[in-house]
């Protein structure tokens, strides 16, 4: 199939970017990223500069791949990362617009590559259980109801790709932050420092320059792992109760 690609080209975070148009011949069996590989090979053959895009596992689990495809983070298929998107979902003659994730908190580094280190800093603010190696009691001394373990897992299955921020009309990081808050606050191990955690993580999230959540739920709709906005509601509860119950002034 013959496709027209409009791809974002941007030298670095200081410069302005623009779209570049390329034609490409793809086959239905290719993955979307393999199609871009082929494009880059063709560009290199002509001694041009290939497009920079991030990717790694190509199995939909590492969260490295990003890009917004025709207005959708990770493209049109539900519960699918860009790396698992295949070209058979497109047809001959299609035009595909490929842009980087856009948010002030995710500055573009080059072409389709953005800086998502804000997510790391949110986790560093408190997205952990303060237990050092060797301090743990026997695994079975902490009993966790099956359903609770399941819910915690569902929240913990976030891959930190940032599609929620990219999809949100406000570039808010609530789904990401709340998934971690939820995961840890559901489990008894994480509840001990739950109040402190949610306060610190929210403060860091605000500091990073993400927008506010306005409950449009675009994050959930575009999340490749189906993380639920129920986590956001849970984080709100945790946060409000932490604010009124902790003893700081």
């Amino acid at each position: 199939m013959k496709l027209t690609l409009k791809i974002w080209r941007q030298k670095n975070s200081q410069t302005k970017g623009k779209f570049e148009v390329h034609k490409i011949e793809a086959t239905p069996e290719m993955s979307f990223l393999e199609m871009l590989d082929v494009l880059n090979e063709e560009i290199i053959e002509k001694k041009g500069e290939p497009f920079a895009f991030e990717h790694d596992c190509r199995e939909g689990i590492c969260g490295t791949c990003s890009m917004v495809i025709n207005g959708q983070p990770h493209g049109p298929m539900a519960l699918t990362t860009t790396c698992q998107l295949h070209m058979r979902h497109y047809k001959d003659g299609d035009t595909i617009v490929i842009e980087p994730f856009r948010a002030n908190a995710f500055p573009v580094l080059k072409d389709l590559v953005v800086d998502r280190s804000a997510f790391d800093r949110i986790i560093q603010a408190g997205g952990f259980v303060s237990v050092s190696t060797g301090q743990a009691p026997d695994g079975n001394s902490i009993l966790i109801e099956q359903d609770v373990a399941r819910d915690a897992f569902d929240a913990a299955s976030c891959i930190g790709c940032g599609a929620c921020v990219a999809a949100c009309p406000n570039a808010s990081a609530m789904l990401f932050t709340s998934a971690k808050v939820s995961h840890l606050s559901l489990l008894p191990q994480g509840q001990v420092e739950g109040a402190k955690r949610v306060k610190k993580m929210v403060a860091q999230m605000d500091k990073e320059g993400f927008g506010n959540c306005s409950n449009t739920y675009a994050c959930e709709a575009e999340c490749p792992k189906g993380i639920s906005v129920e986590n956001i509601a849970k984080m709100n509860r945790e946060y409000f109760s932490a604010m009124v119950s902790t003893s700081d002034k």
Binding site: V131, L143, E145, A149, A152, A156
Partner: peptide, 18 residues
């Protein structure tokens, strides 16, 4: 033990054990 303490959500039995 270490991973459980960190909050790794391992699969559980009905009774809450691993």
């Amino acid at each position: 033990d270490q991973c459980v303490a960190q909050g790794v959500p391992f699969a559980r039995e009905y009774g809450g054990t691993l």
